[in-house]
Design a protein around this nucleic acid. Sequence first.
DNA 1: ATGAAGTAGGACAAAATTAGTCCGAGATCA
DNA 2: TGATCTCGGACTAATTTTGTCCTACTTCAT
Lengths: 163, 163
Amino acid sequence: MLKLTKKADYGLIALRHLATAPNATASTREIADAYHLPVTLLAKVMQQLAKARIVQSLSGTNGGYRLARAASRITALEVVRAIDGPVILTHCFTDHGTCDQSDSCTVREPLRRVHEAILTLLENFTITDLVEPVPQKLTPISLPMNPMRQLPYPELLHESIGT
Amino acid sequence: MLKLTKKADYGLIALRHLATAPNATASTREIADAYHLPVTLLAKVMQQLAKARIVQSLSGTNGGYRLARAASRITALEVVRAIDGPVILTHCFTDHGTCDQSDSCTVREPLRRVHEAILTLLENFTITDLVEPVPQKLTPISLPMNPMRQLPYPELLHESIGT
DNA sequence: ATGAAGTAGGACAAAATTAGTCCGAGATCA
DNA sequence: TGATCTCGGACTAATTTTGTCCTACTTCAT
């Protein structure tokens, strides 16, 4: 489905919260309450972020978490990786042995390019970009472009689903 | 995990196959055999592609599927949508009512930008790009860029997992 | 016209992933 | 010393993905 998991969502929300928190610090419960997230699950997410050194934990009373570095230095890619594990577009990438014949998997290389592009995209997106809702214009992506490519057929436009 | 499903993989492989097939036509079994895919599952995928008018079915003996239009006019985004349904980055997009306070979901808008960028990426990638494995240089993505952003901390680089 | 080879499509089972809970342990502060 | 917090593993439940099975219908060739 090519979607972020809820945990990754929660993580991003929490990081944004920390980035704008008054003392730059907040407890798990505080964040969970603010956005109506399941406390225990968010706690797990925070732990993973701490383990990845994205966030720093402060134990004891009045403890909580704080960003381990500047928000501008925390990329969405890092966060997603820390929480959901390696980002994988196609399945072939990791388990090479599965593809019986390297000859068969003809789509692998081209798809890898798309993959890289998405990674780059996420890497260029930081927590700072989450905190400033500047409606910035989205410049078109450069990818191997096909000169013959045109707009999709009209009849397909009206049944295009989802966002 | 931000990954394509196997079905989407299969669909792309099949479309690539059709794009290069001698008669521009191939049966489900033929394709499944060529890449060692589960026949019945691929059949389902082909049906979905047919319903989305990406592929045209030819019933009867010597039947099979053919591309409904030029490979250069079939985008990866269409394919993924046809097979996996709407592409969703965050969960808030579809069920607006869930987010109790629109005030809470502060990350929605910025994430939507990332979302759009990924969609654009997939939209600019056609079946033709799958068939020509030209190792084209991947130009960096443009996104709302933070001028303060720098490379991730060195200590994080060595534990960066996955691709 | 009859059988072989196709697609169409729904119901269903199995497997994997994600989401969420629970509990015990350790740290810090008042 | 107790309240409040994090840490981390084990565990269950829900959802999604993957894959199979079966029946119906269509086309072609003999």
